[in-house]
C-alpha cells in the first residue's frame, strides 16, 4: 500500500519541485524581465510561457514540429530495419561481426557535430541529409542489442533446433528473433530518444530549407523570444517521450504476455 502510494505520488512530487525550481530561477535571475515591457528575457515563468504563442509563431512551431517528427520517425524506421538486419547478419557469422564491429564503434563515438557538416557537403542540406544524420546517431543501440539478444539465446535451445536439422532461416525465425525481441525492443526505445536528438541537433546546422525544431530554437534565441524558445524545447522533449512511450506500448503488446520484464 505504502509502495503504491509512493509510486503514484513520487513522480508528481518531483514534477512540482521542478516547477517550483523553475519559478525560483525565473524570479531570482537578475535582468530576467525587460524594464520597459516587463517581458521575460531569459527564462519565462511557467504561466507566461504561452504569451507569444499565437499567429505566425505558433504556425512556425507546428511546421517545425512536423518536419522534426518526420525526420525522427523516418530515421528511426530506417535505423530499425537496417540495424536489425546488420545485427542479425553479425550474429550469423563471426567474420561479419569482426568486420563491422570496429566501424560501428567508430561511428558511435564520433561526435554528431563532426558528422553534420560532412553530410551537408556530401548530400546537401535537404531531408535526406537530416534523415542520414538521425540514422547515424540512432542505429548503434539497435545493432548492438539485436546482436546481444541473439547471442544470449541459451545453447541448449540451439541444440534443440539443431537436433531437428533446422535450417538457419528456421532457427532465426522461430528461435533467435523471438528470443532476442526483448533486447531489440530495449534498443529501439533507446534509439527512439537518440533519433529525436539526431533530428534536432543536426537541424542546428541546416540553415537552408524549412526549419525543424533545432533551427527554430536558434531563431527564437537570436530574436530574444524566450517563451516560444522554451515551448519549442518542450515540444522536442515531448516528441522524444512520445516515441519512447510508443515503443513501450508496442513492446508490451508483442512480448508482454511472456517476458518477465513486462509481464507481472
Amino acid at each position: 500500500m505504502k509502495r503504491r502510494f509512493l509510486n503514484a505520488v513520487g513522480p508528481v512530487a518531483v514534477f512540482l519541485a521542478f516547477i517550483a525550481l523553475w519559478y525560483l530561477v525565473a524570479y531570482s535571475l537578475h535582468n530576467n524581465f525587460s524594464p520597459a515591457s516587463g517581458k521575460p528575457m531569459i527564462i519565462p515563468p511557467p504561466h507566461r510561457l504561452f504569451e507569444d504563442f499565437h499567429g505566425p509563431i505558433r504556425d512556425r512551431i507546428f511546421t517545425a514540429l512536423l518536419i522534426s517528427t518526420r525526420t525522427a520517425i523516418t530515421g528511426l524506421a530506417i535505423s530499425a530495419i537496417v540495424g536489425i538486419v546488420i545485427g542479425v547478419a553479425m550474429a550469423q557469422a563471426k567474420w561479419i561481426e569482426r568486420s563491422l564491429w570496429p566501424h560501428l564503434i567508430a561511428l558511435q563515438v564520433t561526435p554528431i557535430i563532426a558528422i553534420v557538416p560532412l553530410m551537408i557537403r556530401l548530400i546537401g542540406a535537404n531531408f535526406t541529409a537530416r534523415v542520414t544524420v538521425t540514422v547515424i546517431i540512432s542505429i548503434f543501440p539497435i545493432v548492438s542489442n539485436t546482436l546481444f539478444g541473439i547471442q544470449s539465446v541459451h545453447p541448449s535451445l540451439h541444440d534443440l533446433f539443431r537436433l531437428q536439422n533446422s535450417s538457419r532461416w528456421v532457427i532465426l525465425r522461430k528461435l533467435q528473433l523471438p528470443a532476442a525481441s526483448p533486447a531489440i525492443f530495449t534498443g529501439l526505445r533507446v534509439a527512439a530518444g537518440l533519433a529525436v536528438i539526431g533530428a534536432i541537433v543536426g537541424d542546428f546546422f541546416f540553415t537552408k530549407g524549412d526549419p525543424g525544431l533545432g533551427q527554430l530554437i536558434t531563431f527564437f534565441f537570436l530574436n530574444n523570444l524566450s517563451g516560444p524558445m522554451f515551448i519549442t524545447a518542450l515540444l522536442a522533449t515531448a516528441l522524444g517521450l512520445m516515441l519512447f512511450i510508443c515503443f513501450g506500448v508496442i513492446n508490451r503488446i508483442v512480448i508482454g504476455r511472456w517476458h518477465d520484464s513486462v509481464a507481472r
Binding site: S156, L160, L163, P178, H259
Partner: peptide
C-alpha cells in the same frame, strides 16, 4: 530417430 531431453526444460517462453 533420436530425441534429447536437456537438464533444463528448454521451453520457448513465448
Amino acid at each position: 530417430t533420436v530425441q534429447f531431453v536437456f537438464q533444463d526444460s528448454t521451453l520457448l517462453p513465448w
